[in-house]
Write a protein that binds this DNA or RNA. Structure first.
Lengths: 155, 155
DNA sequence: GCGATATTGTATGCTATACTAACATTTATT
DNA sequence: AATAAATGTTAGTATAGCATACAATATCGC
C-alpha cells in the first residue's frame, strides 16, 4: 500500500477510474460509522440530524425544500420526516399560503435533542479535523462541493 | 450561496462542524446516483462492482478479506456475496488450506459483467474528473484516504 | 496435547435509506 | 377553462448495515 497508484491490492490500470469513487465511499462510510458511535445514545442518524438542523434554521420549511437541499427524493424525505415526527422531535403543520405544503417545526423535545447533539458534533468535527491542516480541511470541503453542487451546471 | 462560510442556508456558527461531513455525504450520494444512471442496464451497485473487482484481482479471496478491505461487517459482506452468487456472477469454493474459508471466484458471466462495466466506469470517471484538474483530483483522493485509512493510526 | 480463544462463515431479524409508481389535492400556466 | 406542475402521501421493492447467535475450524498459551 505504499505505491500511490494502487489501492487495496487493485492495480492502477484497471481501477484508476474507481479510485476516487472508492475513497469517497470509504471515507463516507467511515464517517458514518464514527457518527453512529458518538451519537449512539441519542439514536439519531446523520441524515435525520441534518434534516432537523435545516428545520431549525428555517422553521416552516417543507419536505420538498429539504429534498431539494439534501438531494433526496420526496418519498425518501417522507420516511425521514415520519421517523422524526414519530419521536416527536418535529411537528407538521399546515401552511396558510399554499395548502399543498406542510410546515415543519422543531418541538421542545427536538430542541433538547439538538442541544445534546451539539456537543457530540464537536467530537465528530475533531475526529475529522485532526487529520488535516485548516487549509486542507477547507480545500477538501471545496473540492467535495464541486461534485454535488455542479451537476452539469444544474440545481 | 455565495458566502463560502455558509451552506444550504445554514450559517457557519452553528454548523461549521457539519460542513465537511455534509459535503462528504452529498458528494457520495451524488456519485452513487450518477453510478446508478450509468449502470442501470447492468443492475449492479457500486459496492457489488467493487467486490467483484476485488475478487477478480485476487481470485480465491475470502469474504473476510473483502470485509476488511472495504470495511464492512461479515454479515454485510454475506449479503453482497449472496446477491452476486445468486446471479451467478461469482462462485464460492472450498479452501484446501483453511477449511473455515471459502474461496471466491469470478464466473464467465461475471467476466462478461466486468467487461460491460469497464466501459461505463470510464464514463463515471469522466463525470468526476471533469470537475478537477489532475492535481486536484489526486489531492482529493489523498485527502479522502486519510479519513478512512488513518483510523487513529490503525489498520 | 489440551483447553481457551479467535477466525470464518452462516442464519435471522431489525432498521434506515432510496427508489418507483400511482394517487389526490392544490396551485400555476397557457 | 383546460392543462400542467408541485406537494404530500401510500405501497412496494431493493440494498446496505448492524446485532446476535450458532457451528466449524485454527491458533495460541500452557
Amino acid at each position: 500500500m505504499k505505491d500511490p497508484e494502487t489501492f487495496a491490492g487493485l492495480t492502477a490500470g484497471r481501477t484508476l477510474d474507481h479510485v476516487l469513487d472508492l475513497h469517497l465511499r470509504l471515507a463516507q462510510s467511515a464517517t458514518q460509522r464514527r457518527f453512529s458511535e458518538i451519537f449512539s445514545d441519542l439514536g439519531i442518524t446523520q441524515t435525520q440530524l441534518t434534516a432537523m438542523l435545516l428545520i431549525a434554521e428555517t422553521p416552516g420549511t417543507s419536505q420538498a425544500d429539504i429534498g431539494r437541499t439534501l438531494q433526496m427524493d420526496r418519498a425518501t424525505v417522507m420516511g425521514i420526516i415520519n421517523r422524526l415526527e414519530g419521536r416527536s422531535l418535529i411537528v407538521r403543520g399546515q401552511s396558510t399560503e399554499d395548502r399543498r405544503r406542510q410546515t415543519l417545526e422543531i418541538t421542545e423535545q427536538g430542541v433538547a435533542m439538538l442541544s445534546a447533539a451539539h456537543e457530540r458534533s464537536g467530537e465528530l468535527g475533531l475526529w475529522l479535523r485532526e487529520r488535516f491542516s485548516d487549509a486542507e480541511f477547507h480545500m477538501l470541503a471545496a473540492l467535495l462541493k464541486r461534485i454535488h453542487e455542479v451537476d452539469i451546471g444544474g440545481l
